[in-house]
Design a protein around this nucleic acid. Sequence first.
DNA 1: AACATTAATTGACAATGTCCACTAATTAAT
DNA 2: ATTAATTAGTGGACATTGTCAATTAATGTT
Lengths: 318, 318
Amino acid sequence: MTRPIAPDRIEAVRRFNRWYTQRAGALRGDLLATPFPLPQARVLFELAHRDGVTAADLAASLAVDPSYLSRLLSGLESEGLVLRARDKADGRRHSLALTAAGKRAFADLDRRSRDEVRGILEPLTPERENRLLGGMHAIEQVLGGAESPASPFTLRAHEPGDLGWVVSRHGALYAREYGWDATFEALVAEIGAKFLREFDPGRERAWIAERDGERVGSVFVVSQSASVAMLRLLLVEPQARGLGLGRRLVAECMRFARTVGYREMVLWTNDGLHAARHLYVEAGFTLVGEQRHTSFGHALVGQTWSLDLGSQRNDPDP
Amino acid sequence: MTRPIAPDRIEAVRRFNRWYTQRAGALRGDLLATPFPLPQARVLFELAHRDGVTAADLAASLAVDPSYLSRLLSGLESEGLVLRARDKADGRRHSLALTAAGKRAFADLDRRSRDEVRGILEPLTPERENRLLGGMHAIEQVLGGAESPASPFTLRAHEPGDLGWVVSRHGALYAREYGWDATFEALVAEIGAKFLREFDPGRERAWIAERDGERVGSVFVVSQSASVAMLRLLLVEPQARGLGLGRRLVAECMRFARTVGYREMVLWTNDGLHAARHLYVEAGFTLVGEQRHTSFGHALVGQTWSLDLGSQRNDPDP
DNA sequence: AACATTAATTGACAATGTCCACTAATTAAT
DNA sequence: ATTAATTAGTGGACATTGTCAATTAATGTT
């Protein structure tokens, strides 16, 4: 049961491939403008990052024919950049390493490559840079699956456009994952509008998590009373789950709430949201009340959780 | 005055380049799995799309050495796929064309290439496919500037997540372009929430414009009274401006409003929004009132525009 | 000990790409 | 009109890049 694919989608991918292949000829896998030809540069790059590998490992990770690699290594060895040493444990294997000269050569190559990329990014506006990085990240993630390494996330305060993003992602994700209807997105929009209108910078805060210029999570702390803070709109994008982002966001809220002087933090959620529940339990929240309600097109059980901010330190950091 | 670039951004671009270069080795510029080697396939592809070009043109558009191209063409000619004919006007030039066999060969190649890309897209969820296409589009647009051809946009009804997107983009764009503060984003969120809560499918509608799976515009029609429709939240992303999208969105609203039986359409805007003003004038709206107000951190002049839906047909389509 | 397997290399060769020189046709300059 | 300069395309020579099968030496298996 294969899914039908729109022809224009296929064309768009092909166009991108053609375009990028041609451009990549210019970028040369980011290793242009180095004194080394691309295959040699790739070997140097890999050796600089993984010292002591064997030729077979290297051939596998560079997706290069072993015989070709052997010749490349011979060349680099005769230039004094690479050292091939027979493995003591297994005499068939050679362990490879850069010599001091090889390390210098790589440092130079690396600097040129960075400068080249910097030269591409510099003329862009920050917004276009974000668009570019976000696009690259999306492609890596979709096509690469788990292959591509997860880059770390960063947290920042909210900016124009963030609130709408929070609304959008709540609406889309809860519709998809739980089948909630449009009134949920409306509710989030109302909560968000109220937050912006009544924002008290000293006692309230929103965090937006980003990865490679792309928003991947959010959380809000709003003032419910002089001593009670409310945690709201906690969201972690599916592609950023499992990185500890949810825990970090909750921890950030607790730290802020303590710093500002709240004595209690509460939050409202619904049963069935197990990942979130886990986070709250872990952070020390306890369930203080439940009430049935019909909302968002479903019969749900709303839950109120509470945490005493004074009694204990739940932040595991020193 | 170059802008400082964060090192992790540079690393992210380099990582993508390395990754994609390696993967593109597998995709081979989307022309893998064809009976032709890549350079020949590229020539066939180009000739199939631009009949009668000269070798120099071809060499330029493929970014290939003329002498190399000459040899490639010789090969293809001896296989009976390409015809080289001396130009009558200029005896130095040869005009190139595919033979019937060449066209068949290309058709086969093209089909295989499409099948290959289809095979990549099929296992993806529609959401991941959108992410992929959106990412590719973003990269082409940012790096390619105006080079990459603009693909056409499509309109669709709103879905979960769209409303938040409208809020987000209004907030971000008006902050950037006019310096409006967060209360504007809050206002849009309130308008959006109200739309979702009181949505009357028979008499109200929202359109989201997409290009390559990426949202690039919006417009809403809401009921103000039995006979008066209100046009709201018209937005066109900067990267999609100049495509006639704004005109199309306004036209869509008018058509819908007429179909549903409204007699008048009104809208509220502010002076200084010149691109929008132009669209409204063009569609036949007239300015019916102005009032000063201080909102969004600025002293503004609000404007009410109106259009009699019965008196004239402003839709230029047949 | 005989055999199979593995890591790395070598030989042979094909594909791909680059540089320079050259021819023929055309255009520009005198 | 003749000469010089330019342009389109080609061929020679060569370097780079990549592929495949065979070989060597070390290790593992029976």
